[in-house]
Design a protein around this nucleic acid. Structure first.
Length: 461
RNA sequence: GCGGCCUUAGCUCAGUUGGCAGAGCGUCGGCUUGUGGUGCCGAAUGUCACGGGUUCGAGCCCCGUAGGUCGCCCCA
């Protein structure tokens, strides 16, 4: 079609796709809050150096896959390809390394990578993630993983994913291991795929997760990091596993998990699934003890993960766990202006009490009923001249096709009793709760009094 | 950056050796303006992705481009 389309690798989130997306973010935010994380929002673009530092030149990442450009002032700007670097930069920029560590951060938002799109991989995509900044203890690693696991449980997709963990050791362990690995693969050089022969020069660790069948046979007998761990690194890894058991998080050890960048150390983990084609990692992370220093801060050992919202959404869809849209109440005036005015009063009353309600803007009763059906209304409140005269309304259950006339004061109760309008049930439960307690009891509980006063400063214009 | 497959109505798709572009769903309207979801009648909607070529004639054959999709590379 020769009309405007979304730019390559971008997509619109509409309807049930948007509901899944939002459900992922809201669930993650709720669970992260339970674990004591606070939410940060850092800029969507940063000075290119925020992302290029620490990346090194071992891969195509900087040259090929970042959205970088010069702004009008001649500065090199990059759309964030991930958010860990931005969070670390913000920690340093705001002077938060000086005290109050560890700091526990949750984030959610769009990221950008200049890649060829494929299943579960886009140029603009969205991630959620958490970071514990300034915590050298293995308990932090385990808690971070437990939080991610609980989010997947809450979403209902945990049965389709498996946690795989590994350790990259400390610097001394890595150097020893890398040397052993290069020696081993060099001895098998001729049997390796062409891709892996190139990796041997550029990034030998990546041979470990090659998809080539020949390579996999050679990899199966390759040395593992575990033969080269220092005493301290081995103890750290053992502690992480012990804490994971304490949190009740099931895991599988996978010695082939690697990380390309130098600032990673110790714990590396991925939640993987076989339900997303070639993009099997749903949530991935690990410990990075050098990144805050790259941003100009003091040594600040940290651990975190990021997860792709689109991939989690695909799992929700596959598991048929798309959240339903709320079913509204359709308010239907029958007659002229007096009926419409009465219907608007009814709308206000319903919405004030938290009931999702709509009115059609035009059409006769039949059209409005058709529209009520189309928008998925569970019930209709019909108000005509007969009803107005008696302060009544007709409450119709649109699923069952039954209806009754009730007093205006009883409309919410009648709607709740249809059982098909969730928000009306909630409103009725709130009524019952309110009437269960005397007012001074509620004051004593000090529950919700200060919501309104704490709204913060007014919006700037 | 590389490769396989795909592109016809808003959606899902049919379209015979090359001979007037179709169906279902959806949308809109009507079937006495106080009752929908299920009935009946009717209507609108196309640069057959784009550009070139072959042919009397191309949705169909050939070449190129773009986009989609699934992989490879890469994966912070």
């Amino acid at each position: 079609m020769a009309q405007l389309q979304p730019a390559r690798g971008t997509h619109d989130l509409i309807g049930e796709e948007h509901r899944r997306h939002l459900h992922v973010i809201e669930t993650a935010r709720r669970i992260a809050t339970l674990y004591g994380f606070e939410e940060w929002s850092t800029p969507i673009f940063e000075d290119t150096r925020v992302f290029s530092r620490g990346l090194g030149d071992t891969s195509d990442v900087v040259s090929k896959e970042m959205y970088s450009f010069e702004d009008r002032g001649g500065d090199s700007i990059t759309l964030r390809p991930e958010n860990t670097a931005g969070v670390c930069r913000a920690l340093v920029s705001n002077g938060l390394t000086q005290g109050g560590l560890p700091r526990k951060v949750f984030y959610a938002g769009p990221m950008f990578r200049y890649e060829r799109p494929q299943k579960g991989r886009y140029r603009q995509f969205h991630q959620i993630g958490i970071e514990v900044l300034g915590a050298p203890e293995p308990l932090a690693d385990a808690e971070v993983i437990a939080c991610g696991w609980q989010i997947q449980q809450e979403l209902g997709i945990d049965e389709g994913t498996v946690l795989e963990i590994n350790t990259l050791g400390d610097a001394a362990s890595r150097d020893a291991y890398r040397a052993a690995l290069v020696g081993y693969f060099a001895a098998h050089r001729d049997a390796l795929s062409a891709d892996s022969q190139a990796r041997l020069e550029k990034n030998p660790l990546r041979i470990l997760d090659s998809k080539d069948a020949k390579d996999r046979a050679i990899v199966a007998d390759a040395p593992t990091i575990h033969d080269h761990l220092t005493k301290e690194a081995a103890a750290f890894y053992a502690a992480v596993k012990r804490y994971l058991e304490a949190f009740g998080v099931p895991f599988r050890e996978n010695p082939r998990i690697v990380r390309g960048l130098d600032y990673y150390s110790h714990t590396a983990f991925e939640f993987v699934t076989d339900r997303l084609g070639a993009q099997g990692t749903v949530m991935g992370g690990g410990r990075y003890n050098g990144l805050v220093e790259e941003m100009g801060g003091p040594p600040t050992p940290s651990v975190g993960w990021a997860a792709g919202v689109e991939r989690l959404s695909l799992l929700l869809e596959a598991a048929e766990l798309t959240p339903p849209a709320p079913r509204p109440v359709a308010v239907i005036p029958v007659g002229g202006e007096a009926a419409e005015a009465a219907a608007i009063l009814m709308l206000r009353e319903l919405r004030d009490r938290g009931v999702v309600a709509e009115i059609a803007y035009r059409g006769n009763t039949k059209r409005r009923m058709e529209r009520a059906n189309r928008i998925g209304a569970g019930a209709a409140v019909i108000i005509g001249e007969d009803e107005i005269a008696e302060d009544m309304a007709v409450v119709r259950n649109l699923d069952a096709g039954t209806q009754q006339r009730v007093a205006l004061a009883d409309v919410v109760r009648a709607l709740a009793e249809t059982g098909v309008v969730e928000s009306a049930v909630q409103a009725l439960m709130q009524d019952l709760l309110d009437s269960e307690f005397e007012e001074d009891e509620i004051d004593d509980l000090d529950l919700d009094d200060d919501d309104e006063d704490d709204a913060g400063e007014p919006e700037r214009r």
